[in-house]
Amino acid sequence: QEEEKEIKRLAKKFNASEEEARRAWKKAGGDPETAEKILKKKG
């Protein structure tokens, strides 16, 4: 599933848990760029 792959990639890229990545993904409405910004800010 595309979403799961994206979440795993985000978690790995930002050294975050999949739970954090999933939360960022949901907050971003499934937009990878926005999710990255959220995780970057958090990191």
Rank of each mutant, 00 (worst) to 15 (best):
W25N: 02
A16I: 13
Q1Y: 12
A28I: 01
Q1D: 14
E33D: 10
S17G: 04
E4G: 05
L10A: 02
K40Y: 14
W25K: 02
E18A: 05
K8C: 05
R9Q: 08
E4L: 08
E3Q: 11
E18C: 06
R9S: 06
W25A: 02
A11L: 04
A35T: 06
E2F: 12
K8Q: 14
K5Q: 13
L10S: 01
E36N: 04
P32M: 14
T34N: 09
E18D: 08
E19V: 07
G29Y: 09
A28L: 01
K41D: 15
A21V: 09
L10F: 03
P32K: 11
E3V: 12
E6A: 13
R23S: 13
K42V: 15
E33S: 13
R9Y: 06
K13M: 12
A16P: 00
K27I: 14
S17M: 03
G43A: 11
G29D: 10
G43K: 12
E33W: 12
K12L: 14
E19T: 06
G43V: 11
E20W: 05
E19G: 05
Q1S: 13
W25L: 12
A28D: 01
K5Y: 13
R22V: 04
K13E: 08
G30D: 02
K37G: 05
K40P: 01
S17H: 05
K13G: 02
G30V: 01
N15M: 08
Q1I: 13
G30T: 02
G30A: 06
W25I: 05
E6Y: 13
W25C: 03
E4D: 13
E2Y: 11
K37A: 06
P32F: 11
A28C: 04
K12I: 13
Q1V: 13
N15Q: 09
E6C: 04
R23P: 01
I7G: 01
K41Y: 14
G29Q: 10
R23N: 13
N15T: 03
E20D: 07
G30L: 02
E6L: 12
A11R: 05
A16Y: 05
E36S: 08
K27G: 09
G43M: 12
I7R: 01
D31R: 06
F14V: 04
E19L: 04
D31S: 06
K8N: 09
F14K: 00
G30Q: 05
G30R: 06
R23T: 09
N15L: 09
E33L: 11
I38H: 04
R9A: 10
R22C: 05
K40Q: 14
A28T: 02
